[in-house]
Structure formats: structure tokens, C-alpha cells
């Protein structure tokens, strides 16, 4: 059970992020909510690749038969982080533009597109 703790923490992070998207009204906080989900997913990926007592997956200077953690999830996480930076930056940029136009970041007031 204790071995599953990292996975549980990741799922809690994702759930908190989803909750943020529903209850928080500030656009920047919504972006933070997406960031929470992203951190949860990234942590989940890294936690998946962990091997008990494993060393970093670098062959140079590695002991002959030491267990290594899986390298693929780390590569995936790195890609996912890069993508996350791009999406977060884009969303924040849109939030800034919206703020300039409407003078508010309150999601309840940013509803020109409805119906």
C-alpha cells in the first residue's frame, strides 16, 4: 500500500486541478489549475519509471549490474513539460490580452461569447 502512495498523491493533484477549474473564478488561477493537473500527470509518469533502489539511467561509470530506473518515462515527462510551458504561456498571454480589453480577470464577467 505504501508503495502506491506516490500514485495516490498524483491523483490527488489531478483532482485538485480539476476542482480548481470548476470553483475558481480568476483566469490566472484557472491556468494554475491546469498547471496542477500537469504536475500531477508528470509526477505520475516519473513515479511509474522508478525502480526500487535504482540508479540514474546513465551507462557511463554505472556499476555492472545495478538496476536502473526506466529512462522512457523521463523522456516523456521532459516532452510533456516543454509542451506544458508552451500551453501555459499561451493561456497567460490570452489572459493578459483579455484583461487589457475587459479590465477584469473574473470568469463570470468574461462572457461576451454566449448563446
Amino acid at each position: 500500500m505504501i508503495g502506491n502512495l506516490p500514485f495516490v498523491v498524483c491523483m490527488i493533484l489531478v483532482a485538485l486541478g480539476l476542482w480548481t477549474l470548476v470553483v475558481k473564478r480568476n483566469l490566472v488561477k484557472l491556468v494554475i489549475g491546469v498547471g496542477l493537473i500537469e504536475s500531477g500527470v508528470n509526477l505520475f509518469l516519473v513515479a511509474l519509471g522508478y525502480v526500487q533502489g535504482g540508479i540514474p539511467p546513465i551507462y557511463t561509470y554505472a556499476p555492472a549490474d545495478a538496476p536502473m530506473v526506466l529512462p522512457t518515462p523521463q523522456a516523456l515527462t521532459l516532452t510533456s513539460i516543454v509542451i506544458g510551458v508552451a500551453t501555459t504561456a499561451l493561456m497567460l498571454a490570452f489572459a493578459v490580452v483579455i484583461y487589457r480589453h475587459k479590465g477584469t480577470l473574473d470568469a463570470r464577467k468574461i462572457r461576451e461569447l454566449r448563446g
Binding site: L18, L21, L27, L30, V31, V34, I37, E38, V41, I83, T87, L90, M91, F94, A95, V97, I98, H101, K102, I110, E112, L113
Partner: peptide, 19 residues
Amino acid sequence: SRAPEAAFKTMLLYSVSGL
């Protein structure tokens, strides 16, 4: 003022679905 609003909403939902 409408285009960034549409883009923000779309981007938020797109990134959640992607994640």
C-alpha cells in the same frame, strides 16, 4: 475582444483534454 476570449476558453479545455 472576442477572439482572445474564445482562444482562452478553447485552450483551457484543449489542455485539460490533452493532459
